[in-house]
């Protein structure tokens, strides 16, 4: 119970510190109400804010996992090992039936890696300091830390790796001819239709295969843009909430038309409302943190699940066909 209280204090404290840091500084807000769609170069040699965050969080992930698992996992798990086993065991129980036991042995490091990496990188955007630690570049100040998945380079790189892995596993498990057959092959029953129609269907299925190829290529685009869009959108949402929070905590509410109308109606009571609104402004970003925790988890899961589905579609489909042919 004490631990839960301590953890809650750390989380809420971190959120509040982040909120206060941004609101007090005001410099980030001065840069505009929305973030740039592309990463900013903050250091020499083209090192961007997302790259710095990526390295720091990657190192933190490795250290965290090492701390949780320990030097050597034991048969009677320690609390950290139990947490890791629960996560990995849960993922395994979901992914293995999708991918198939045969391919799971090859792809599980990548699937687990996607989930852990994307999840913790997404949640890193909620840490104090991300977006609020500034670095002077020329005449302007730029945040040196930014969630990695709000950079399309990172999400596209992971999507391309998933495509390469898909291709490798497809060739490994079904072979080049099997892959060709899966995409372009005539799936009609030869005995069920006239011969000329069966020949004509080759052309149709080849055309369908070309569309399938485009669809496979666009899997990379959809995977990367989905993750990027969600994380970048969430980052923008938090940024805007901080800006609005700053507006409220600096007494912006009293300058609005709404306050003037309230004053006309309520008189002195409007000042009380302005007082409450001013201090509620500090808590404004808080609900959106919970939203982003959920979005971060869902996006990590969706990305991992889709990669598993893409692999499972060809590997398991081939397994089933073999099974049917044998029957």
């Amino acid at each position: 119970m004490k631990r839960v209280a301590k953890l809650s204090l750390m989380v809420f404290g971190g959120m509040a510190m982040n909120s206060i840091a941004v609101a007090a500084d005001g410099q980030a807000a001065a840069e505009g109400s929305s973030l740039s769609a592309s990463p900013e170069v903050v250091f020499g040699q083209g090192i961007t804010d997302t790259l710095v965050t990526s390295w720091i969080i990657s190192l933190a992930i490795i250290l965290l996992m090492r701390w949780l698992v320990g030097a050597k996992p034991t048969m009677i798990p320690r609390p950290g090992q139990a947490v890791t086993e629960t996560v990995l065991g849960g993922l395994q129980s979901i992914m293995e039936p999708i991918v198939g036991a045969k391919a799971f042995g090859h792809i599980f490091p990548l699937l687990f890696g996607y989930f852990i990496f994307i999840l913790l990188q997404n949640w890193s955007g909620l840490l104090p300091g991300i977006g609020s630690i500034l670095h002077r570049v020329g005449d302007s100040y730029l945040g040196i830390l930014r969630p990695v998945n709000s950079d399309l380079n990172a999400t596209l790189a992971m999507a391309l790796i998933s495509l390469v892995a898909w291709m490798y596993l497809s060739i490994k498990h079904v072979g080049i001819s099997g892959l060709y057959g899966h995409i372009f092959g005539n799936k009609a029953e030869k005995n069920g239709i006239p011969g000329f129609m069966y020949g004509f269907l080759f052309v149709i299925f080849f055309g369908v295969g070309l569309i399938e190829c485009i669809s496979i290529i666009f899997r990379g685009v959809s995977l990367s843009f989905r993750l990027y869009g969600n994380v970048f959108g969430g980052d923008n949402l938090l940024h805007n909430m901080y800006t609005f929070s700053e507006f409220l905590t600096n007494g912006g509410f009293v300058k609005t038309e709404l306050f003037r109308t309230a004053s006309n109606v309520l008189g002195g009571g409007a000042n009380l409302i302005a007082f409450v609104v001013k201090y509620l402004g500090y808590l404004l970003p808080l609900p959106f943190y919970f939203l982003e925790i959920l979005v971060g988890l869902i996006q990590a899961f969706v990305f991992t699940l889709l990669v598993a589905v893409y692999v499972g579609l060809i590997v398991k489909h081939d397994d089933e066909q073999h099974h049917i042919n044998l029957e």
Binding site: S58, I62, R66, V69, P73, P109, G113, F117, M158, I161
Partner: peptide
């Protein structure tokens, strides 16, 4: 970014995923 991700996956696989799954 790709190399960074692959490095993390490799290290996690070598020092976390594989030993944990073996133990499990």
């Amino acid at each position: 970014q790709g190399v960074n991700f692959l490095c993390v996956v490799f290290v996690l696989y070598r020092f976390a995923f594989r030993p944990v799954l073996k133990t499990m």
